[in-house]
């Protein structure tokens, strides 16, 4: 079977399109590359959606944590503490348990026991907590002068937040937020590994990598392939976030621009 044929058969296998049976013997490198790459669809799906949705909740959490109002501050603080203080591994376990029991309460919760929604929800809450903490830190370090200038121009309330506070917060938080994005994508490998069951052998990249490791009894090929795919994803994230960073800093004189330093300030 030619490699092109393999790609046609298995490139979309992880979402249930193409050949139904996974390769059973005579494993080729091409098969491993194709199927593990196919699994990456799920990693990107979880990472991207959780990141996009988490961004908004993170902003709310940061504002909540910085709020002088106790009723807003305490829940935000606890939310961030619980999600940042416990391993994602254990969060997945509890989420699955919780969704199973909620299923009995109402059929609205039925899809939550599948990875595509349930795991996404966990990753969403998790990344919101981590990003919320980053945004909170940035919120506190906004130069007072900027806020005073906004007042002087007569900005207040929503307008001040949208035009001054929020963009400045983003600019300051961006390098750390880039890290969070990288680690969120890495964390997506835990979904099928420990959290949620795989249906009809549709899984993420790690699921297929371990399938091959199990069938060929040789871990030294599939896992490095998986690593390669993730390095590509990481490079893409760094590139895209770098562009956004340039946009956020475009008004600053060259020497004051925040240098894009990807630091491991946060992961799980």
């Amino acid at each position: 079977m030619s490699c092109w044929q393999t790609v046609q058969d298995y490139a979309l296998r992880s979402i249930g399109i193409g050949e139904r049976l996974l390769p059973r013997d005579d494993f080729t490198l091409c098969q491993q590359f194709t199927l593990i790459g196919s699994g990456m669809i799920w990693n990107v799906y979880f990472g991207l959606l959780a990141l996009l949705a988490g961004f908004f909740l993170a902003t709310a959490l940061a504002l909540g944590k910085a709020s002088p109002n106790r009723a807003l501050r305490k829940p935000a603080e606890w939310f961030i503490f619980v999600f940042r203080g416990s391993p994602l591994f254990i969060q997945f376990f509890f989420a699955y348990f919780l969704f199973l029991s909620l299923k009995g309460v109402s059929s609205i919760f039925d899809p939550f026991t599948s990875a595509w929604l349930g795991a996404l929800a966990v990753l969403f809450l998790n990344t919101a907590a981590y990003s919320g903490e980053i945004f909170f830190g940035a919120l506190l370090s906004i130069p007072r002068g900027d806020l005073e200038a906004a007042d002087a121009y007569g900005f207040s309330g929503w307008k001040k937040f949208r035009k001054i506070t929020w963009p400045t917060m983003l600019r300051l938080a961006w390098p750390a937020y880039t890290n969070e994005a990288i680690f969120l994508f890495h964390a997506t490998t835990l979904v099928y590994f420990s959290g949620f069951p795989a249906w009809r052998q549709k899984g993420d990249a790690l699921y297929y990598a371990s399938y091959f490791a199990d069938k060929t009894f040789n871990p030294f090929i599939p896992y490095p392939i998986l690593a390669m795919y993730f390095i590509l994803v990481t490079l893409t994230i760094v590139g895209v976030f770098g562009l956004v960073n340039r946009h956020l800093n475009r008004h600053l004189p060259a020497e004051r621009r925040m240098r894009m330093r990807v630091r491991p300030t946060l992961l799980r």
Partner: peptide, 9 residues
Amino acid sequence: GVPDIAFFL
């Protein structure tokens, strides 16, 4: 650039 779990395996 690589998830830690991939190394551990």
